[in-house]
Amino acid sequence: MSAAAARADAGTAVARVRGLRKSYGDREVVAGVDLELFAGECFGLLGPNGAGKTTTLKLCLGLVEPDGGSIDLFGYDLPRQAREARQRVGVVPQVDSLDPDFTVSENLLVFGRYFGLSDAQVKARIPDLLEFANLSGRGDAKIQALSGGMKRRLTLARALVNDPDLVILDEPTTGLDPQARHVIWDRLKQLTAQGKTLLLTTHFMEEAERLCTRLSVLDQGRVIATGEPRALIAEHIEPQVVEVYGDGVDEWASAHAAPLSERCERTGETVFCYAHDAGPLVASLAAWPGLRHLHRPANLEDLFLKLTGREMRD
């Protein structure tokens, strides 16, 4: 789809998920999820481990039979019309599934065949795909010779071999170093600029904040918040945050934190104070030389921790 067509298309729903449910044994992993994706947006699914993100994606690809609810992708009813729907989707899975028996180019060629593309069609696309993945000149390299970042970029290129309208990415930057992560972010922004719709899961809040036009926070199989990242933060979190840690943090907290902040939480050795005006709170720290602090605007991580709690999920 061209960028112009995508803009004309903006506002039309690419995917509509209603009341989606899926249980494994007694555990309801997806417990009534509603989602709506519009053309050209980058939609994030955020949630702690075990929140149901990956299962939701698999349901949206028609790879898992739902127990209830409906999934509509490009007007196709899933899982019944999964084949037709997947023809227009590209997938970047969480776990590397590049074909180790093939070179970089062969991976793209063979994957293109799965979509019914002729070898000539795929070969014509390979130079562009390699350039997009920053792998030009590496077409004959073996997969084993690629770094983690290169593999992930090739996986992204592989997901684009059929020129999909929707790209689904399951934790696309997990396990990558910061440089490699920034390259992936840059490429994903290029894709949205081209008019592709993206659906991604992540637990990197910075990633979600940078990339996502809208997002849903998922917890225990339910959507607990949906909206634009900045709007969600403004709705749920005080605008300023002071993180305080060091010797005597408990004494300082009981003396100042509660009266000078609207909300105060402790995680490990750090006290998080939330306020509309953090000035008096920061001023109070001057008399506590043993303490260190960080004064910053509220971010998505604060929202995420408020909505899903601070305890470990495993």
Binding site: L63, R86, P93, D99, Y114, G116, N162
Partner: peptide
């Protein structure tokens, strides 16, 4: 995971 990759195609 070749089968998984193929299942993401049609």
């Amino acid at each position: 995971r070749t089968w998984d990759a193929i299942l993401n195609a049609p």
